[in-house]
Design a protein around this nucleic acid. Sequence first.
DNA 1: CTCCTTCCCTAACAAGTGTTTGGTAGATTA
DNA 2: TAATCTACCAAACACTTGTTAGGGAAGGAG
Lengths: 205, 205
Amino acid sequence: MNSDSSASAPSTSSAARRAEILATAAQVFADQGYNATTVRRIADAAGMLAGSLYYHFDSKESMLDEILSAFLDELWAGYDTVLAAGLGPRETIEALVTESFRQIDRHGPAVAIYQKESRHLSVQPRFGYLADSQARFENAWLRTLERGVTEKVFRGDLDVRLVYRFVRDTVWVAASWYRPDGTHSPEEIARQYLSMVLEGITPRT
Amino acid sequence: MNSDSSASAPSTSSAARRAEILATAAQVFADQGYNATTVRRIADAAGMLAGSLYYHFDSKESMLDEILSAFLDELWAGYDTVLAAGLGPRETIEALVTESFRQIDRHGPAVAIYQKESRHLSVQPRFGYLADSQARFENAWLRTLERGVTEKVFRGDLDVRLVYRFVRDTVWVAASWYRPDGTHSPEEIARQYLSMVLEGITPRT
DNA sequence: CTCCTTCCCTAACAAGTGTTTGGTAGATTA
DNA sequence: TAATCTACCAAACACTTGTTAGGGAAGGAG
Protein backbone atom coordinates (compact mmCIF):
# COMPACT_ATOMS: atom_id res chain seq x y z
CA MET A 1 0.00 0.00 0.00
CA ASN A 2 2.58 2.55 1.00
CA SER A 3 6.18 2.65 -0.04
CA ASP A 4 8.08 2.66 3.22
CA SER A 5 6.47 -0.25 5.00
CA SER A 6 8.45 -3.40 4.32
CA ALA A 7 12.03 -4.05 5.38
CA SER A 8 13.56 -3.46 1.97
CA ALA A 9 12.82 0.23 1.66
CA PRO A 10 13.81 1.58 -1.77
CA SER A 11 16.67 3.59 -0.31
CA THR A 12 16.20 7.23 0.59
CA SER A 13 17.30 8.56 -2.79
CA SER A 14 14.29 7.00 -4.48
CA ALA A 15 11.79 8.69 -2.21
CA ALA A 16 13.82 11.88 -2.46
CA ARG A 17 13.69 11.87 -6.25
CA ARG A 18 9.98 11.26 -6.07
CA ALA A 19 9.49 14.21 -3.77
CA GLU A 20 11.69 16.33 -5.98
CA ILE A 21 9.63 15.57 -9.06
CA LEU A 22 6.45 16.17 -7.13
CA ALA A 23 7.71 19.55 -5.97
CA THR A 24 8.56 20.70 -9.47
CA ALA A 25 5.22 19.39 -10.71
CA ALA A 26 3.50 21.43 -8.03
CA GLN A 27 5.41 24.49 -9.14
CA VAL A 28 4.39 24.09 -12.75
CA PHE A 29 0.80 23.24 -11.87
CA ALA A 30 0.63 26.33 -9.71
CA ASP A 31 1.63 28.88 -12.27
CA GLN A 32 0.39 27.31 -15.48
CA GLY A 33 -2.75 25.69 -14.18
CA TYR A 34 -3.29 21.95 -13.98
CA ASN A 35 -5.03 21.47 -17.29
CA ALA A 36 -2.72 23.79 -19.13
CA THR A 37 0.29 21.90 -17.84
CA THR A 38 1.55 19.16 -20.10
CA VAL A 39 3.23 16.10 -18.76
CA ARG A 40 6.13 16.86 -21.06
CA ARG A 41 6.66 20.21 -19.41
CA ILE A 42 6.83 18.64 -15.97
CA ALA A 43 9.31 16.10 -17.23
CA ASP A 44 11.34 18.86 -18.82
CA ALA A 45 11.49 20.80 -15.56
CA ALA A 46 12.49 17.60 -13.77
CA GLY A 47 15.26 16.90 -16.28
CA MET A 48 13.79 13.82 -17.91
CA LEU A 49 11.44 12.71 -20.65
CA ALA A 50 7.69 12.47 -20.44
CA GLY A 51 7.45 8.71 -20.36
CA SER A 52 9.94 8.46 -17.54
CA LEU A 53 7.54 10.11 -15.17
CA TYR A 54 5.43 6.98 -15.32
CA TYR A 55 8.12 5.01 -13.61
CA HIS A 56 7.45 7.11 -10.50
CA PHE A 57 3.76 7.88 -10.85
CA ASP A 58 0.66 6.20 -12.23
CA SER A 59 -0.66 9.24 -13.98
CA LYS A 60 -0.70 13.01 -14.13
CA GLU A 61 -3.78 12.93 -11.94
CA SER A 62 -1.95 10.89 -9.31
CA MET A 63 0.63 13.62 -8.98
CA LEU A 64 -2.06 16.21 -8.42
CA ASP A 65 -3.74 13.92 -5.93
CA GLU A 66 -0.57 13.40 -3.94
CA ILE A 67 0.25 17.09 -3.91
CA LEU A 68 -3.16 18.10 -2.66
CA SER A 69 -3.67 15.36 -0.10
CA ALA A 70 -0.20 15.83 1.36
CA PHE A 71 -0.96 19.50 1.80
CA LEU A 72 -4.37 18.90 3.36
CA ASP A 73 -2.97 16.33 5.76
CA GLU A 74 -0.43 18.77 7.10
CA LEU A 75 -2.99 21.54 7.19
CA TRP A 76 -5.40 19.56 9.30
CA ALA A 77 -2.68 18.38 11.60
CA GLY A 78 -2.07 22.03 12.41
CA TYR A 79 -5.73 23.01 12.55
CA ASP A 80 -6.73 20.13 14.79
CA THR A 81 -4.04 21.07 17.26
CA VAL A 82 -5.37 24.62 17.37
CA LEU A 83 -9.00 23.57 17.64
CA ALA A 84 -8.25 21.13 20.44
CA ALA A 85 -6.43 23.73 22.49
CA GLY A 86 -9.62 25.17 23.93
CA LEU A 87 -8.79 28.79 23.19
CA GLY A 88 -11.25 31.66 23.12
CA PRO A 89 -12.85 32.66 19.80
CA ARG A 90 -10.50 35.49 19.06
CA GLU A 91 -7.41 33.51 20.01
CA THR A 92 -8.64 30.59 17.92
CA ILE A 93 -9.06 32.79 14.86
CA GLU A 94 -5.64 34.27 15.41
CA ALA A 95 -4.08 30.83 15.70
CA LEU A 96 -5.90 29.53 12.63
CA VAL A 97 -4.85 32.47 10.52
CA THR A 98 -1.25 32.20 11.65
CA GLU A 99 -1.25 28.48 10.96
CA SER A 100 -2.72 29.14 7.53
CA PHE A 101 0.07 31.52 6.62
CA ARG A 102 2.60 28.95 7.77
CA GLN A 103 1.02 26.46 5.41
CA ILE A 104 1.17 28.98 2.60
CA ASP A 105 4.82 29.42 3.41
CA ARG A 106 5.52 25.70 3.24
CA HIS A 107 3.05 24.47 0.63
CA GLY A 108 2.78 27.59 -1.49
CA PRO A 109 2.24 25.86 -4.83
CA ALA A 110 -0.16 23.32 -3.34
CA VAL A 111 -2.29 26.09 -1.88
CA ALA A 112 -2.36 27.91 -5.20
CA ILE A 113 -3.41 24.75 -6.98
CA TYR A 114 -6.04 24.05 -4.38
CA GLN A 115 -7.52 27.47 -4.87
CA LYS A 116 -7.64 27.33 -8.63
CA GLU A 117 -8.73 23.76 -9.19
CA SER A 118 -10.61 22.80 -6.06
CA ARG A 119 -13.96 23.78 -7.47
CA HIS A 120 -14.01 21.49 -10.51
CA LEU A 121 -12.05 18.74 -8.85
CA SER A 122 -14.26 18.26 -5.82
CA VAL A 123 -17.09 16.90 -7.95
CA GLN A 124 -14.79 14.12 -9.14
CA PRO A 125 -15.06 11.04 -6.88
CA ARG A 126 -11.32 10.72 -6.55
CA PHE A 127 -11.09 14.22 -5.14
CA GLY A 128 -14.10 13.96 -2.92
CA TYR A 129 -11.89 14.59 0.08
CA LEU A 130 -11.55 18.16 -1.12
CA ALA A 131 -15.25 18.72 -0.55
CA ASP A 132 -15.06 16.98 2.82
CA SER A 133 -12.15 19.13 3.85
CA GLN A 134 -13.93 22.28 2.78
CA ALA A 135 -16.98 21.29 4.82
CA ARG A 136 -14.90 20.69 7.93
CA PHE A 137 -13.10 23.93 7.28
CA GLU A 138 -16.29 25.93 6.99
CA ASN A 139 -17.69 24.30 10.09
CA ALA A 140 -14.66 25.07 12.23
CA TRP A 141 -14.49 28.71 11.18
CA LEU A 142 -18.22 29.35 11.35
CA ARG A 143 -18.54 27.85 14.82
CA THR A 144 -15.65 29.93 16.08
CA LEU A 145 -17.09 33.11 14.60
CA GLU A 146 -20.53 32.44 16.02
CA ARG A 147 -19.07 31.71 19.41
CA GLY A 148 -17.25 35.02 19.18
CA VAL A 149 -20.46 36.88 18.44
CA THR A 150 -22.16 35.24 21.40
CA GLU A 151 -19.30 36.19 23.68
CA LYS A 152 -19.36 39.69 22.19
CA VAL A 153 -15.74 39.65 21.07
CA PHE A 154 -16.91 39.85 17.44
CA ARG A 155 -19.46 42.25 16.02
CA GLY A 156 -23.03 40.97 15.86
CA ASP A 157 -24.29 43.31 13.15
CA LEU A 158 -22.60 41.45 10.29
CA ASP A 159 -23.70 38.45 8.25
CA VAL A 160 -21.58 35.68 9.78
CA ARG A 161 -21.39 33.84 6.50
CA LEU A 162 -20.04 36.92 4.82
CA VAL A 163 -17.49 37.35 7.56
CA TYR A 164 -16.43 33.74 7.13
CA ARG A 165 -15.88 34.07 3.42
CA PHE A 166 -14.20 37.39 3.99
CA VAL A 167 -11.66 36.01 6.44
CA ARG A 168 -11.17 32.76 4.59
CA ASP A 169 -10.57 34.38 1.22
CA THR A 170 -8.34 37.09 2.58
CA VAL A 171 -6.04 34.52 4.05
CA TRP A 172 -5.81 32.00 1.25
CA VAL A 173 -5.68 34.40 -1.65
CA ALA A 174 -2.37 35.55 -0.25
CA ALA A 175 -0.90 32.36 -1.68
CA SER A 176 -1.16 33.88 -5.15
CA TRP A 177 1.35 36.60 -4.44
CA TYR A 178 3.29 35.37 -1.42
CA ARG A 179 6.89 34.39 -2.06
CA PRO A 180 8.81 32.54 0.67
CA ASP A 181 11.88 34.73 0.11
CA GLY A 182 10.03 37.97 0.65
CA THR A 183 10.78 40.53 3.33
CA HIS A 184 7.94 39.48 5.61
CA SER A 185 7.87 36.22 7.51
CA PRO A 186 4.63 34.25 7.57
CA GLU A 187 4.10 35.24 11.17
CA GLU A 188 4.60 38.93 10.39
CA ILE A 189 2.12 38.78 7.52
CA ALA A 190 -0.34 36.94 9.73
CA ARG A 191 0.07 39.62 12.39
CA GLN A 192 -0.68 42.47 10.01
CA TYR A 193 -3.53 40.63 8.33
CA LEU A 194 -5.09 39.87 11.68
CA SER A 195 -4.69 43.46 12.69
CA MET A 196 -6.57 44.56 9.59
CA VAL A 197 -9.33 42.00 9.89
CA LEU A 198 -9.86 42.46 13.59
CA GLU A 199 -9.35 46.20 14.00
CA GLY A 200 -9.99 47.55 10.50
CA ILE A 201 -7.84 49.83 8.42
CA THR A 202 -9.15 53.07 9.88
CA PRO A 203 -7.70 54.44 13.13
CA ARG A 204 -9.43 53.52 16.39
CA THR A 205 -9.92 56.30 18.91
CA MET B 1 -12.32 47.81 -36.52
CA ASN B 2 -15.53 47.51 -34.60
CA SER B 3 -18.74 45.92 -35.78
CA ASP B 4 -21.32 48.64 -35.41
CA SER B 5 -19.59 51.49 -37.18
CA SER B 6 -20.86 51.64 -40.76
CA ALA B 7 -24.40 52.40 -41.83
CA SER B 8 -25.38 48.84 -42.72
CA ALA B 9 -25.28 47.27 -39.29
CA PRO B 10 -25.70 43.47 -39.44
CA SER B 11 -29.19 43.67 -37.94
CA THR B 12 -29.66 43.38 -34.22
CA SER B 13 -30.23 39.62 -34.19
CA SER B 14 -26.76 38.93 -35.47
CA ALA B 15 -25.06 40.96 -32.78
CA ALA B 16 -27.48 39.52 -30.27
CA ARG B 17 -26.57 35.95 -31.20
CA ARG B 18 -22.93 36.85 -30.96
CA ALA B 19 -23.38 38.27 -27.50
CA GLU B 20 -25.41 35.24 -26.50
CA ILE B 21 -22.68 32.85 -27.56
CA LEU B 22 -20.10 34.99 -25.85
CA ALA B 23 -22.08 34.95 -22.63
CA THR B 24 -22.38 31.17 -22.58
CA ALA B 25 -18.70 30.87 -23.45
CA ALA B 26 -17.89 33.09 -20.49
CA GLN B 27 -20.03 30.90 -18.26
CA VAL B 28 -18.25 27.73 -19.33
CA PHE B 29 -14.82 29.34 -19.17
CA ALA B 30 -15.58 30.56 -15.67
CA ASP B 31 -16.43 27.25 -14.10
CA GLN B 32 -14.32 24.84 -16.12
CA GLY B 33 -11.31 27.01 -16.68
CA TYR B 34 -10.24 28.33 -20.06
CA ASN B 35 -7.81 25.59 -20.98
CA ALA B 36 -10.05 22.84 -19.71
CA THR B 37 -12.91 24.14 -21.81
CA THR B 38 -13.24 22.57 -25.23
CA VAL B 39 -14.63 24.45 -28.15
CA ARG B 40 -17.12 21.62 -28.61
CA ARG B 41 -18.49 22.17 -25.15
CA ILE B 42 -19.09 25.85 -25.80
CA ALA B 43 -20.82 25.00 -29.05
CA ASP B 44 -22.92 22.42 -27.26
CA ALA B 45 -24.02 24.93 -24.64
CA ALA B 46 -24.84 27.36 -27.43
CA GLY B 47 -26.86 24.77 -29.32
CA MET B 48 -24.64 24.31 -32.32
CA LEU B 49 -21.64 22.39 -33.59
CA ALA B 50 -18.03 23.21 -32.91
CA GLY B 51 -17.19 24.40 -36.41
CA SER B 52 -20.12 26.78 -36.48
CA LEU B 53 -18.53 28.91 -33.82
CA TYR B 54 -15.99 29.97 -36.39
CA TYR B 55 -18.62 31.75 -38.38
CA HIS B 56 -18.93 34.19 -35.48
CA PHE B 57 -15.41 34.19 -34.06
CA ASP B 58 -11.88 33.83 -35.34
CA SER B 59 -10.74 31.51 -32.61
CA LYS B 60 -11.28 30.31 -29.09
CA GLU B 61 -8.73 32.86 -27.98
CA SER B 62 -10.69 35.66 -29.64
CA MET B 63 -13.69 34.81 -27.52
CA LEU B 64 -11.61 35.02 -24.37
CA ASP B 65 -10.12 38.28 -25.57
CA GLU B 66 -13.50 39.83 -26.25
CA ILE B 67 -14.88 38.70 -22.92
CA LEU B 68 -11.99 40.12 -20.93
CA SER B 69 -11.59 43.39 -22.80
CA ALA B 70 -15.30 44.11 -22.72
CA PHE B 71 -15.24 43.63 -18.98
CA LEU B 72 -12.17 45.79 -18.46
CA ASP B 73 -13.60 48.56 -20.62
CA GLU B 74 -16.71 48.76 -18.50
CA LEU B 75 -14.71 48.48 -15.32
CA TRP B 76 -12.48 51.39 -16.19
CA ALA B 77 -15.39 53.50 -17.30
CA GLY B 78 -16.73 53.15 -13.78
CA TYR B 79 -13.37 53.57 -12.07
CA ASP B 80 -12.42 56.65 -14.04
CA THR B 81 -15.67 58.31 -13.11
CA VAL B 82 -14.97 57.65 -9.45
CA LEU B 83 -11.35 58.77 -9.63
CA ALA B 84 -12.26 61.98 -11.44
CA ALA B 85 -14.87 62.92 -8.84
CA GLY B 86 -12.30 64.41 -6.47
CA LEU B 87 -13.52 62.56 -3.40
CA GLY B 88 -11.57 62.08 -0.18
CA PRO B 89 -9.52 58.88 0.30
CA ARG B 90 -12.11 57.04 2.34
CA GLU B 91 -14.95 58.00 0.03
CA THR B 92 -12.87 57.03 -2.98
CA ILE B 93 -12.19 53.60 -1.54
CA GLU B 94 -15.86 53.16 -0.73
CA ALA B 95 -16.85 54.13 -4.23
CA LEU B 96 -14.26 51.88 -5.84
CA VAL B 97 -15.32 48.90 -3.77
CA THR B 98 -18.98 49.50 -4.50
CA GLU B 99 -18.25 49.88 -8.19
CA SER B 100 -16.23 46.65 -8.09
CA PHE B 101 -19.12 44.70 -6.63
CA ARG B 102 -21.40 46.11 -9.31
CA GLN B 103 -18.98 44.81 -11.93
CA ILE B 104 -18.96 41.43 -10.24
CA ASP B 105 -22.72 41.51 -10.38
CA ARG B 106 -22.77 42.27 -14.09
CA HIS B 107 -19.67 40.52 -15.37
CA GLY B 108 -19.48 37.67 -12.89
CA PRO B 109 -18.02 35.08 -15.25
CA ALA B 110 -15.60 37.55 -16.79
CA VAL B 111 -14.28 38.48 -13.37
CA ALA B 112 -13.83 34.83 -12.45
CA ILE B 113 -11.97 34.18 -15.67
CA TYR B 114 -9.83 37.24 -15.14
CA GLN B 115 -8.83 36.04 -11.71
CA LYS B 116 -7.94 32.54 -12.75
CA GLU B 117 -6.20 33.18 -16.03
CA SER B 118 -4.88 36.71 -15.79
CA ARG B 119 -1.50 35.60 -14.50
CA HIS B 120 -0.47 33.35 -17.38
CA LEU B 121 -2.26 35.40 -20.01
CA SER B 122 -0.65 38.74 -19.27
CA VAL B 123 2.73 37.51 -20.49
CA GLN B 124 1.20 36.81 -23.89
CA PRO B 125 1.50 39.87 -26.18
CA ARG B 126 -2.13 39.72 -27.20
CA PHE B 127 -3.21 40.04 -23.59
CA GLY B 128 -0.70 42.67 -22.65
CA TYR B 129 -3.55 45.00 -21.80
CA LEU B 130 -4.21 42.83 -18.77
CA ALA B 131 -0.85 43.78 -17.32
CA ASP B 132 -1.43 47.43 -18.21
CA SER B 133 -4.79 47.37 -16.51
CA GLN B 134 -3.36 45.77 -13.42
CA ALA B 135 -0.67 48.43 -13.24
CA ARG B 136 -3.23 51.26 -13.49
CA PHE B 137 -5.34 49.45 -10.95
CA GLU B 138 -2.51 49.14 -8.46
CA ASN B 139 -1.55 52.74 -8.98
CA ALA B 140 -5.03 54.08 -8.35
CA TRP B 141 -5.55 52.06 -5.19
CA LEU B 142 -2.08 52.62 -3.77
CA ARG B 143 -2.25 56.38 -4.28
CA THR B 144 -5.62 56.55 -2.62
CA LEU B 145 -4.44 54.50 0.34
CA GLU B 146 -1.29 56.56 0.75
CA ARG B 147 -3.28 59.76 0.59
CA GLY B 148 -5.51 58.33 3.29
CA VAL B 149 -2.54 57.62 5.53
CA THR B 150 -1.26 61.15 5.06
CA GLU B 151 -4.64 62.60 5.90
CA LYS B 152 -4.84 60.25 8.87
CA VAL B 153 -8.10 58.61 7.81
CA PHE B 154 -6.26 55.31 7.37
CA ARG B 155 -3.87 53.69 9.84
CA GLY B 156 -0.21 54.45 9.32
CA ASP B 157 1.20 51.44 11.14
CA LEU B 158 0.47 48.98 8.34
CA ASP B 159 2.40 48.05 5.21
CA VAL B 160 0.47 49.94 2.54
CA ARG B 161 1.25 47.29 -0.04
CA LEU B 162 -0.20 44.63 2.21
CA VAL B 163 -3.29 46.72 2.76
CA TYR B 164 -3.67 47.15 -0.98
CA ARG B 165 -3.50 43.44 -1.69
CA PHE B 166 -5.74 42.80 1.26
CA VAL B 167 -8.48 45.11 0.03
CA ARG B 168 -8.09 44.16 -3.61
CA ASP B 169 -8.22 40.44 -2.99
CA THR B 170 -11.11 40.55 -0.58
CA VAL B 171 -13.19 42.35 -3.11
CA TRP B 172 -12.45 40.36 -6.23
CA VAL B 173 -12.39 36.94 -4.68
CA ALA B 174 -16.04 37.46 -3.94
CA ALA B 175 -16.66 36.74 -7.61
CA SER B 176 -15.93 33.09 -6.96
CA TRP B 177 -18.94 32.63 -4.71
CA TYR B 178 -21.21 35.54 -5.56
CA ARG B 179 -24.40 34.65 -7.41
CA PRO B 180 -26.52 37.45 -8.91
CA ASP B 181 -29.73 35.87 -7.65
CA GLY B 182 -28.57 35.75 -4.05
CA THR B 183 -30.26 37.47 -1.14
CA HIS B 184 -27.79 40.35 -0.99
CA SER B 185 -27.58 43.08 -3.59
CA PRO B 186 -24.14 44.17 -4.77
CA GLU B 187 -24.53 47.40 -2.85
CA GLU B 188 -25.43 45.55 0.34
CA ILE B 189 -22.45 43.24 0.04
CA ALA B 190 -20.23 46.23 -0.66
CA ARG B 191 -21.58 47.94 2.45
CA GLN B 192 -20.81 45.00 4.73
CA TYR B 193 -17.43 44.38 3.15
CA LEU B 194 -16.50 48.01 3.59
CA SER B 195 -17.66 47.91 7.16
CA MET B 196 -15.38 44.94 7.83
CA VAL B 197 -12.38 46.36 6.03
CA LEU B 198 -12.70 49.84 7.49
CA GLU B 199 -13.86 49.11 11.02
CA GLY B 200 -12.72 45.54 11.57
CA ILE B 201 -14.76 42.60 12.79
CA THR B 202 -14.29 43.29 16.50
CA PRO B 203 -16.60 45.75 18.26
CA ARG B 204 -15.55 49.38 18.56
CA THR B 205 -16.45 50.84 21.87
C1' DC C 1 31.81 -12.55 -13.87
C1' DT C 2 26.75 -12.96 -13.75
C1' DC C 3 22.23 -11.67 -12.30
C1' DC C 4 19.02 -8.39 -11.03
C1' DT C 5 17.11 -4.21 -9.80
C1' DT C 6 16.79 0.75 -10.50
C1' DC C 7 15.91 4.50 -13.43
C1' DC C 8 15.57 6.42 -17.48
C1' DC C 9 15.11 6.65 -22.94
C1' DT C 10 13.11 5.74 -27.52
C1' DA C 11 9.21 5.30 -30.09
C1' DA C 12 4.94 4.77 -30.69
C1' DC C 13 -0.27 4.68 -29.65
C1' DA C 14 -5.26 6.25 -29.41
C1' DA C 15 -8.00 9.88 -28.06
C1' DG C 16 -8.98 14.57 -28.06
C1' DT C 17 -7.74 19.28 -29.48
C1' DG C 18 -8.64 23.83 -32.30
C1' DT C 19 -9.50 24.85 -36.88
C1' DT C 20 -10.70 24.66 -42.01
C1' DT C 21 -13.25 23.52 -46.08
C1' DG C 22 -17.23 22.81 -48.79
C1' DG C 23 -21.91 22.49 -48.73
C1' DT C 24 -26.93 23.80 -47.87
C1' DA C 25 -31.75 25.08 -46.03
C1' DG C 26 -34.01 29.22 -45.44
C1' DA C 27 -34.67 33.95 -45.40
C1' DT C 28 -33.69 38.46 -47.89
C1' DT C 29 -33.13 41.20 -51.72
C1' DA C 30 -33.65 42.59 -56.64
C1' DT D 1 -38.60 34.05 -60.04
C1' DA D 2 -33.58 34.39 -59.68
C1' DA D 3 -29.58 35.81 -57.02
C1' DT D 4 -27.52 36.60 -52.77
C1' DC D 5 -26.69 36.33 -48.06
C1' DT D 6 -27.06 34.37 -43.39
C1' DA D 7 -26.17 30.94 -40.06
C1' DC D 8 -25.36 26.71 -39.57
C1' DC D 9 -23.85 21.43 -40.47
C1' DA D 10 -20.81 17.45 -41.87
C1' DA D 11 -16.52 15.82 -42.24
C1' DA D 12 -12.21 16.06 -42.17
C1' DC D 13 -7.37 18.20 -41.09
C1' DA D 14 -2.89 18.58 -38.47
C1' DC D 15 -1.42 18.56 -34.10
C1' DT D 16 -1.06 17.84 -29.10
C1' DT D 17 -2.38 15.22 -25.35
C1' DG D 18 -1.63 11.42 -21.56
C1' DT D 19 -0.02 6.95 -21.61
C1' DT D 20 2.37 2.48 -22.73
C1' DA D 21 5.79 -1.06 -24.30
C1' DG D 22 10.33 -2.55 -24.91
C1' DG D 23 14.99 -1.80 -24.24
C1' DG D 24 19.32 -0.55 -22.16
C1' DA D 25 23.03 1.62 -19.20
C1' DA D 26 24.64 1.77 -14.31
C1' DG D 27 25.57 -0.35 -10.23
C1' DG D 28 25.06 -3.33 -6.31
C1' DA D 29 24.56 -8.52 -4.74
C1' DG D 30 25.71 -13.39 -5.16
